[in-house]
Simulated scan of single mutants.
Amino acid sequence: MSGYPEAPDGDSGFSGLKAVFFNCTLKRSPELCHTSGLVELSAGLMRRQGVQVEIIRPIDHPIATGVYPDMTEHGWERDAWPELFERVKAADIIVVAGPIWLGDNSSVTKQVIERLYAMSGLTNDAGQYIYYGKVGGALVTGNEDGVKHCAMNILYSLQHIGVTIPPAADAGWIGPIGPGPSYLDEGSGGPESDFTNRNTTFMAWNLMHMAMMLRRAGGIPAWGNVPEQWRAAGRDPDLDPNPDYR
């Protein structure tokens, strides 16, 4: 696809990586979703480099609201999040994508971030918090201003729970101010936008580069960031009334 360069030698070495995209649209499948257009550009580039990609529309799943790992233990009848999180655990790359509403991220985007946060007290094989060694990015669509504001919120949230954010890890598209065409609408100019296409390209490549760097390095070094080391050094866990949350 024009504007989306492949690896110079045709063998990028990314075939061991896994990526999960959360398309946080408010529209259930199979309704047309403009965010999916931008997601597919990034996901398609990754697939062509051998990355195993999964795209999840959270709105299609009965995800409960809350900040605990399994909300059925807190009064909800159903909660799909524990099962979906198994796909996050297996992923090297996490991309949160969604639309702008009232100048901010969608309610579904906020919900996904809250549920990612709910698992942040878990640890990986090195004893670090569970998201250490994973990389993250953001994709945002809309027809009014707010891309940078929304991406800022997503990327801050991801790094706060332990996800590594590479350079230029966000991209987006917005149309004119006020009501107007959305990304996939005929004549919108979205798919032809050099600015959006360049940023989406850079984001996808930087996510793959950083994920592979971390994989080859065995993740983030497990020293100075392991909860059990903190406790063993004399920190009294009883002094922290809520240690599971960052």
Rank of each mutant, 00 (worst) to 15 (best):
M210A: 08
T123G: 03
G98R: 07
S157E: 03
R235A: 13
F195A: 04
G146Y: 08
Q128C: 01
A151Y: 01
V112P: 08
L214V: 04
P179W: 05
G162F: 03
I154M: 09
Y129M: 06
L184I: 09
N153I: 14
L184R: 00
P167C: 08
I113H: 11
P176T: 14
P237Y: 02
L207K: 07
P237I: 01
I154R: 01
D236V: 04
N197E: 01
I154E: 00
S106K: 02
D170G: 10
I94P: 14
G180A: 15
T196S: 00
G218N: 06
Q111F: 06
K110W: 07
R235F: 13
G136I: 05
G133E: 07
M210P: 01
H209F: 09
H160A: 14
N105C: 15
G178S: 09
Y131D: 00
L155T: 09
I94L: 15
D236W: 05
G189L: 07
V163L: 00
S107N: 04
E114K: 12
M213K: 12
K134Y: 11
F202T: 15
Y156G: 11
H209S: 03
D104N: 14
P237A: 03
D236N: 14
V135Q: 08
G187S: 10
P237H: 03
N197F: 02
H149R: 13
Y132A: 03
G180Q: 08
A169N: 11
G103S: 00
N206C: 08
R235I: 13
A118K: 02
W101H: 14
H149T: 15
V112N: 14
P181D: 09
M213R: 14
D125G: 12
S188P: 04
A204C: 09
M208I: 04
D236R: 05
L184M: 10
R216Y: 07
S157A: 14
G136K: 06
T141I: 11
G127S: 07
G137S: 05
N143R: 14
G172T: 01
V95F: 12
Q128N: 01
P191T: 06
A168D: 14
A211H: 02
A138P: 00
N199K: 05
W223S: 15
L139N: 05
N143F: 10
D185C: 03
E228L: 00
E114H: 12
L239H: 09
E114M: 11
A168G: 12
E186C: 06
A222C: 04
M213V: 08
T200Y: 02
L102T: 13
P221R: 13
V163D: 01
A138F: 13
T109W: 07
Q111E: 13
D125P: 07
V147Q: 10
I220K: 04
R198Q: 07
A169E: 02
I174K: 03
Y131S: 01
I174R: 04
R215F: 04
P179C: 06
K134D: 04
R216V: 09
D194Y: 02
E186M: 11
A217S: 10
E114F: 12
M152I: 05
V95K: 06
I174P: 03
A126R: 04
R235C: 12
D240Q: 08
V226Q: 00
P166T: 11
D145T: 13
E192M: 07
P176Q: 12
S182L: 13
S193W: 00
K134A: 10
